[in-house]
Simulated scan of single mutants.
Amino acid sequence: MKRACLFFISLCIGLLYFIPVETQAISPNEVKVQLTHESHSQEGTAFSIYGISRSDYEKALNLGIELSIEKTKEWLSTKKTPKVKQVIVDASQKAEFTLPRHNALGEQMYYVLVQNQPDREGVNGKDIYQVSPSFISFDDLEEPTLDIYTKRVFMAQLPYFFKYSEKEAKPLANAEFAFYQFNESHEKVYLTNLDPLEWQVLRDGSQAYSFKSDDQGLVMMPDIGLEEGTYYFEETKAPVGYKISKESTQITLVIQDNEEGRVMTLNNHILHATEAGVLPEDIIKKGEPRVINELETDPPETSTPKTQTTIKETPKGSSFLPKTGEKVWSYGLVGLVLMSVAILLLKRRKENE
């Protein structure tokens, strides 16, 4: 009997011990989040979580902020959004944590999850990727748990520059460029085809593969697997009304791989990484680095017109008036006539005598 009583008491104590833990795990103000991220980093991948209001959440979605990693980070920095938590996805490729549904004032909470640093994979870690930001809402969440699966976006380093006019400082479309490098014999080896990749020694870039500037003046190459080294763009056709400058015939691109990844510089200007092959809007608005075109001919200078002497015709029926330059000749002719008459008269007189 005593053993039965002790067993019953022990069972009750055990139940009382577990009840608070279970109640705490399903608290109505908390959501258990399970983050799944494919990471090849031995140190793990760190994520930051920021708390935002409902109005900020709706504005961000309306503006499409969540579609860009750069936009999201810039938006959070501009608004000085507080970071509420940091989590790390380790070799298990998962991280679990909890987030409150409401703040201390009872207001609905919304969150933004962003990756702190890009991941690397592939040979020598040349492939760089970062996950798209996650804007989190619990509005339609009925269960106390939420699963988040990250979506990778490759941050590719691609050669690019912008074509602009010199005086108007406006982007120029339809400028055409060839791409080349020098071989050991210091000959120009031009890129002539992308798929499959082909290079040929040519006299000039007129027969090479052509890259054309778009309406924003942007000239961008796709990822063709360029190795480390020095390459050049050469303008082969200028937009209508513009001429090719000397600088446009040898635009220098340098590619280097270091511990931090791949770095590209064009005319000593460090190029920004693209998100899935797309440049951030702020880079496009700046339009840098630029390659300038000058107008073919400058507009004629404004000058005072020379005064022209107008020669008026002598009306019919008017008396003869010699013009300037004719006066001496006219008087000389009259003199000759008078002299001839005088000589004839003198001769006749002598004959009569």
Rank of each mutant, 00 (worst) to 15 (best):
A4E: 10
S10R: 08
S10Y: 10
Y17K: 04
E22R: 10
I26F: 15
E30M: 14
G44A: 09
T45Y: 06
A46W: 06
G51M: 14
D56A: 06
K59M: 13
G64E: 05
K71A: 13
T72N: 01
L76T: 01
K80H: 14
P82C: 07
Q86A: 11
V89K: 02
A95V: 05
F97H: 02
R101K: 14
H102P: 03
H102V: 05
Q108R: 13
V112T: 04
L113K: 06
Q115T: 01
Q115C: 08
D119N: 15
N124A: 14
S132T: 09
I136G: 07
S137W: 09
T145V: 11
T145S: 12
D147W: 15
K151M: 10
K151E: 15
P159S: 01
S165W: 01
K170E: 15
A175P: 05
F179K: 06
F182Q: 05
D195E: 15
R203M: 14
Y209N: 14
S213W: 04
G217K: 02
L218R: 00
L218I: 01
M221I: 03
L226W: 08
L226R: 02
Y232A: 07
E234H: 10
G241T: 04
G241V: 03
T249N: 12
Q250G: 05
Q256S: 13
D257Q: 12
N258S: 11
R262T: 09
E288S: 11
L295H: 11
P299R: 10
P299L: 11
P299E: 13
V334H: 04
L336D: 08
M339S: 10
I343S: 01
L346E: 00
R348M: 09
R348L: 11
